[in-house]
């Protein structure tokens, strides 16, 4: 079983949703980023999404755009992002870590080389925003051979006819984008999300994490009732920027307290 599979099984046993925290590697610098990364599991993060900064993040809102820019200005690159993962793994062997980002930095690194180095560093899965299932051949087969899971995205525009295509080769979890838009902007309609998850579960048993626009514990709590995991990103990045690592870890703890299921 992969770290992700183990983690979702543990959460299900504890009757709670997994808290998935997104941070941008190297924001605002390598050392701060490492400190935050190392503190997240104890603060209550079940799964970590580590963003690979890219100059042109077209699916992200202003907060993550700015974080990527800060990271790049601080000298972050793909090599250093993998170095962050290695350093994290020196202390933590159980928390699943997903690298999330855009295809071009991986393409430039060389797909095969990147997958080899990512697997060696201790990465569990990749989520490449602009690599839809139609282009699975770019990385999918190599990643699966290396033991990396490929996280798929489903959105409100993914209709019933398209869903099987998205679910084919989906592993680790399915990232359900709660509403049409960019990260960190707008809010989810919980009823619509619950309905969409029902449709997906009819076709697949892969755990589903819901993200986009989840900022506070009171927004996360109702999603935790219906989803296998809840993703928070922009709000954590803002907390980090405003109050440093302590503030980001404080928010993580508040969000973690919203994960248990009521029933």
């Amino acid at each position: 079983m992969s770290r992700l599979d183990v983690r979702f099984a543990d959460c299900a046993r504890d009757n709670r949703a997994a808290l998935v925290t997104y941070i941008c590697a190297g924001d605002p610098d390598f050392d701060t980023s490492l400190e935050l990364l190392q503190g997240l599991p104890a603060a209550g993060a079940d799964i970590i999404e580590l963003g690979m900064p890219f100059s042109d993040p077209t699916a992200d809102g202003p907060t993550i755009q700015a974080a990527a820019l800060r990271a790049l200005q601080g000298g972050q690159n793909q090599q250093r992002t993998l170095e962050l993962v290695r350093r994290f793994r020196e202390q933590n062997q159980s928390t699943p870590l997903v690298l999330m980002g855009y295809y071009n930095p991986i393409h430039r690194y060389g797909g095969a080389d990147f997958i080899r180095d990512a697997a060696e560093a201790g990465v569990d899965a990749l989520l490449v925003v602009d690599l839809p299932p139609e282009h699975d051949n770019e990385l999918g087969p190599m990643a699966r051979d290396a033991g990396l899971q490929m996280i798929r995205l489903a959105t409100p525009t993914t209709d019933a006819q398209r869903l099987p295509r998205v679910l084919e080769h989906a592993s680790g979890f399915l990232y359900y984008v709660s509403h049409n838009g960019v990260t960190g902007v707008g809010a989810a309609d919980h009823t619509a999300v619950a309905q969409a998850l029902e449709g997906i579960r009819a076709q697949s048993s892969v755990p589903i994490c819901v993200g986009f626009g989840v900022r506070r514990a009171e927004q996360a709590a109702p999603l935790a009732q219906v989803a296998d995991g809840v993703v928070v990103g922009s709000a954590l990045i803002e907390a980090l920027q405003q109050g440093g690592v302590a503030a980001a870890l404080g928010l993580t703890a508040e969000l973690a307290a919203a994960m248990p299921r009521q029933a």
């Binding site: 839809p132 139609e134 995205l153 998205v166």
Partner: peptide
């Protein structure tokens, strides 16, 4: 070429 877009845009 190709269709390297986020899932939200694929159906479009």
């Amino acid at each position: 070429g190709g269709r390297f877009v986020a899932e939200s845009l694929m159906p479009l």
